[in-house]
């Protein structure tokens, strides 16, 4: 399956990945409306980590043996049988935050949508390419087949 590959040597911490992730997961899908009208209820699922000049955009690593799946008591966290991507079925999530505690990448967050659910990267399943990859101005994120 295709994965998001991080090239930290070219990440310049502009955080445009976060901006476009937020827009891609908004209901309007319009950058200005998303920020103006939905800012409090929609969030980016990618997080840019910074330490001095070192920075990179971190999102769910799509682990082969995901701890979040194992830890999830409700089965909300699951592997999509069609695409193989690990996603959270928010209708089943009970907000126990076990996934957040076990994720070694810190890539799961508490959703700000108003519902007590976990929020994580879904690889923008309805698009050809995740929004963070498509909008990275310096190709510091790539979407490629990794064995």
């Amino acid at each position: 399956m295709k994965r998001i590959v991080i090239h930290e040597e070219y990440c310049m911490a502009c955080r445009l990945c976060e901006v476009h992730c937020l827009v891609a997961h908004s209901s309007s899908r319009d950058i200005i409306k998303a920020y103006r009208d939905e800012r409090d209820t929609v969030m980016s699922r990618v997080i840019v980590e910074e330490s001095g000049p070192l920075s990179f955009a971190m999102q769910c690593r799509q682990c082969q043996d995901p701890r979040c799946l194992e830890a999830c008591p409700s089965g909300a966290m699951h592997r999509d049988p069609a695409t193989g991507a690990i996603t959270c079925d928010e209708s089943r999530c009970v907000g126990c935050w076990m996934c957040i505690m076990v994720c070694p990448a810190g890539a799961v967050q508490q959703s700000t949508s108003g519902h007590r659910v976990a929020s994580k990267c879904d690889l923008c399943q309805d698009a050809d390419m995740p929004a963070c990859v498509a909008h990275c101005p310096n190709e510091a994120l790539t979407y490629e087949e990794v064995s």
Binding site: M12, A13, C14, R15, L16, V19, I31, I32, Y35, R36
Partner: peptide, 12 residues
């Protein structure tokens, strides 16, 4: 009216 205060300009 277009600025979303994302601060990309600040960081760049």
């Amino acid at each position: 009216s277009r600025c979303i205060a994302c601060q990309v300009c600040v960081r760049q």
